[in-house]
Computed example of a mutant assay.
Amino acid sequence: MMVFKKFLDFYINSSLHVALSAFALVSMTQYFFGVERDFSVAFFAFFGTVVGYNFVKYDAIARLNKTELKKELKGIVFLSFISLLACFYFFLQLSWMTKISAFAFFGLTLLYTLPFFPNKQNARNWKGVKIYIVAITWVGVTVLLPLQEAQISFSFDVLLMAIQRFLLVFSLVLVFEIVDVKLDDPHLQTVPQKIGVELTKKLSYVLLFLLLLLEFFYTNNNHFLPFFFKLLVCGTIAIFLFFANENRSRYYASFWLESVPILWWLVLVVLN
């Protein structure tokens, strides 16, 4: 059991789980737009997420050298280096326009992590900004990049998908913020810190309802399957929201909640 727990902790702490969620969301975007599977974008998103998230989480430790690297952290550093090489390899497979867009979202990650101006905090510590940067970055990586690589021009349907993905990620992050409401620095001014846990839950329910409502506005919405799966994922997130509180274990959001997009994708894989 201890071996399994250590493996699970490493799997979560090394950002492999959240990276698999990114892979799943890219694959779902390609499916719903009828894009022939392009694994270069999906694997770029996977390895890029490992690198980006680990950079955000462990950059301060590495730069300030506050503590001696423990065995697990050394493993994460090694995995991040391998992922960086893999990310660069798949980056080279992308078109030039997709590469330019990828650089833009990489810049958002840097803005989120590094202070660009003397004596200024990074964007991660700007009041109320964190959740928007995270959601926009995920929209870019899991919606815009795969569609741009497939040479699908911007349309009303693409806009709807981008808005839906923003609402989805925003709602997921709200669950994280509820669970971490007592741990987050009060200066961050997260949504639950500003309006309370109960109002945050109600807000997220509204966002999930809007996500489903937008499904009826697609110009070629002539199939039931996309709505069914979005109903499935929104219903699952709503259940997580209902039971979310500051006393939940770290696995509640970091593993089980982040498994929702993966489950959504796996069901489609089995059905197809």
Score class of each variant (00 low, 15 high):
Ala244Met: 13
Val139Asn: 09
Leu199Ser: 09
Val50His: 11
Phe105Ala: 12
Asp185Asn: 15
Arg124Cys: 07
Ser259Ile: 06
Ser204Asp: 11
Pro118Gly: 04
Cys87Ser: 03
Leu79Asn: 07
Leu94Arg: 09
Lys74Trp: 02
Ala22Leu: 07
Met97His: 02
Leu145Tyr: 07
Phe33Ile: 07
Val270Phe: 15
Ala135Phe: 06
Leu232Tyr: 05
Thr190Cys: 10
Ile178His: 08
Ala238Trp: 09
Phe216Gln: 06
Phe242Val: 07
Val26Glu: 14
Leu108Ala: 07
Lys120Met: 06
Thr236His: 01
Phe106Met: 15
Leu94Thr: 09
Tyr112Cys: 15
Ile239Tyr: 11
Leu231Ala: 13
Asn65Asp: 01
Ala123Lys: 12
Ser155Leu: 14
Cys234Ser: 14
Val139Pro: 15
Val191Trp: 10
Val143Phe: 03
Asp9Pro: 04
Lys71Cys: 00
Leu232Asp: 09
Leu271Phe: 10
Phe116Asn: 02
Leu64Thr: 12
Ser259Lys: 07
Asp59Phe: 13
Gln93Cys: 13
Asn245Ile: 07
Val143Glu: 00
Asn122Cys: 14
Phe91Lys: 08
Lys120Asn: 05
Val181Leu: 04
Phe33Trp: 09
Val26Asn: 10
Gly196Ile: 03
Tyr251Met: 04
Val141Cys: 03
Trp126Gly: 12
Asn222Val: 12
Ala104Lys: 08
Phe103Ser: 08
Gln148Trp: 00
Tyr132Leu: 13
Phe78Asn: 10
Val206Trp: 14
Met161Pro: 00
Val179His: 14
Leu79Gly: 00
Ile136Gln: 07
Leu69Gln: 14
His17Cys: 15
His223Thr: 12
Pro186Asn: 05
Leu85Gln: 04
Lys202Ile: 03
Asp185Leu: 15
Ile82Arg: 00
Leu16Ser: 15
Lys99Ser: 06
Asn221Asp: 01
Glu215Asn: 14
Met28His: 08
Gly140Thr: 08
Met2Trp: 12
Leu214Arg: 12
Phe55Met: 01
Leu241Asp: 13
Phe88Pro: 00
Asp59Leu: 10
Tyr132Asp: 09
Ser40His: 14
Val18Lys: 04
Leu94Trp: 08
Leu257Ser: 11
Ala135Asn: 03
Gln148Lys: 02
Gln30Leu: 02
Ala135Ser: 04
Asp38Arg: 14
Ser27His: 09
Ala123Gln: 08
Leu199Met: 03
Val35Lys: 00
Ser95Glu: 03
Phe55Cys: 01
Leu266Asn: 09
Trp265Val: 01
Ile136Lys: 06
Tyr112Pro: 09
Glu72Arg: 10
Ile237Asn: 01
Asn222Gln: 13
Phe91Arg: 07
Thr113Gln: 06
Thr142Ser: 10
Lys71Ile: 02
Lys70Glu: 08
Phe81Ala: 11
Leu183Gln: 04
Arg248Ala: 02
Lys71Met: 03
Gln121Asn: 11
Phe156Pro: 01
Thr236Trp: 12
Ala62Gly: 03
Tyr132Glu: 10
Trp96Asn: 06
Glu68Met: 03
Leu211Ala: 09
Lys71Gln: 02
Leu232Phe: 13
Leu108Cys: 10
Ser259Cys: 11
Val179Phe: 03
Ala45Met: 10
Phe209Thr: 10
Val139Asp: 08
Ile61Ala: 06
Val269Leu: 15
Ile163Val: 15
Ile262Asn: 01
Asn65Gly: 01
